[in-house]
Write a protein that binds this DNA or RNA. Structure first.
Lengths: 159, 159
DNA sequence: CGATTGCGGTTGATCCGTCAACTATAATTG
DNA sequence: CAATTATAGTTGACGGATCAACCGCAATCG
């Protein structure tokens, strides 16, 4: 009568799961608030700019962005709309395939990313990294990489 | 020129952070999809029912729910609206303070939670717990508990 | 080739959650 | 006790993301 899910999860497992959920919610909320306050940009915006900055020619097809960010194609369309009207991104069409439309980082977008990167990375350090020793970071990286989407080998969701 | 944030984060730190973000997005999306498909309910709904089920009298003030779920009070009002009209929750007023309104789990809500709990916890096992040994779960719990919101000692956000 | 099928992207409707403003009640203070 | 201030909750307007439907183009298959 006392509990439902908790009764089905033993102590450490429950702790791990709850900390995982709560810490994520707390940290992301704070990061977003920082980024918005300091640069008028959400973490999603930042993520898109970052992916573009790392891509050849600083441009990516919309679909690639959608996959990287784990948004739907329609979600990306709208997100990019915003960045375009902010002047941080341009749409350029693809010569070899008229269906695809690239999002390309503008110089202004690159500069914005550079500026935001400083404070954002500092926030990530403060909220996440600084709570661990380098050895623990490695442990954590190794553990988390095994989760679905974590980037490790067994990350296939068995679709 | 090659990277922005990554250049500022060394390898393991970047891996840990990225795995943390991506795994969370992937897992939560899958859990939500499962819960919706099998029980017509979001993880937020589930969370609210769960908190209520663990509360004395199976009821909690709206504000308490808001705090537990990390939603705003207005967000909780709307979420609870939905659960009320689904018959899983009732609103009951407080006799000692006319401002507070409790959300109370109905029998139907309890039953629904019980049913959903089975599959939901199974999904959590599959997506999260099963990737680790018991010892690793403990490690993970210990590490994550140190993060903001993770429930550990230093979890104060220094407001 | 011409028709079908598939892919990339956008749009309309909708849902979910926030913020800001508001109401009503309680607590405080002079 | 009256006036102020604080707290609990709801509501309206809005933003962000999804789904489903769609358009245009490419690729494939007869």
């Amino acid at each position: 009568m006392e509990a439902i899910a908790p009764a089905l999860l033993d102590g450490a497992a429950l702790d791990a799961w709850r900390s995982y959920l709560k810490s994520h919610a707390t940290i992301l909320r704070a990061l977003d608030a920082d980024l918005i306050a300091q640069h008028g940009m959400t973490t999603r915006d930042y993520e898109v700019l970052l992916y573009l900055s790392q891509a050849p020619d600083r441009k990516l097809p919309m679909s690639a962005l959608a996959e990287s960010t784990m948004l739907t194609r329609s979600g990306i369309t709208r997100l990019v709309d915003g960045l375009v009207s902010a002047g941080l991104i341009e749409r350029v069409s693809c010569r070899s395939d008229a269906r695809v439309s690239y999002a390309q980082l503008t110089d202004a977008g690159y500069e914005k990313l550079r500026q935001a990167g400083c404070t954002h990375v500092a926030s990530i350090r403060e909220m996440f990294l600084e709570h661990f020793t380098p050895g623990e970071i490695e442990q954590l990286a190794s553990l988390l990489s095994r989760l679905p989407g974590g980037g490790g080998v067994g990350a296939c969701t068995a679709e």
